[in-house]
Design a protein around this nucleic acid. Structure first.
Length: 103
DNA sequence: TTAATGACCTATC
DNA sequence: CGATAGGCCATTA
C-alpha cells in the first residue's frame, strides 16, 4: 500500500456531512506530517468522483484557494448539500462537522 | 542521485 | 491580526 493509496482510502472513508483536515488525513494515512503529501495526492486526484476531495479542508476549516476546481463556492456548495454548515467567516464549522473516528 | 515543487502546519515578528 | 520564514514528507523531472 503506497502512501498515496492510503491517503485515498482515508479520504474516501470520510462520511458524508463531515469534513476532514489535511493533517487528520495525513495522521490516519500514517504520518501527521504528510499533510503536504495529502494535498499533493488529492491534487493528482486519479479518481475524481470517487475521492471526495471537497470534504478535505485545512486545519482552520478553510478551503484552499488552489483547490477551487470549480470555484471555492463550488466546494462550499457541495459541503452545504451534504449538511455541513459554514461560519460567517466562510469556513467550515470544524467544531461540529470535523470528521472523527469515534462519533 | 540531485534539485525543485507542493490542495500544509507551526512559530516568530 | 497579517505577513514571513522554516520544517516536515513524498512525488516528479
Amino acid at each position: 500500500m503506497n502512501t498515496f493509496e492510503r491517503i485515498y482510502e482515508v479520504v474516501k472513508s470520510i462520511p458524508k456531512g463531515k469534513v476532514a483536515t489535511y493533517g487528520l488525513v495525513a495522521l490516519l494515512a500514517g504520518n501527521p506530517r504528510l499533510a503536504r503529501v495529502v494535498g499533493y495526492a488529492l491534487h493528482v486526484n486519479p479518481q475524481p468522483g470517487v475521492i471526495p476531495c471537497h470534504r478535505v479542508v485545512t486545519k482552520n476549516g478553510e478551503v484552499s484557494k488552489s483547490f477551487a476546481f470549480g470555484g471555492e463556492n463550488m466546494q462550499r456548495t457541495l459541503l452545504a448539500e451534504e449538511g455541513v454548515e459554514f461560519l460567517e467567516d466562510g469556513r467550515v464549522d470544524m467544531s461540529r462537522f470535523l470528521w472523527r473516528e469515534n462519533t
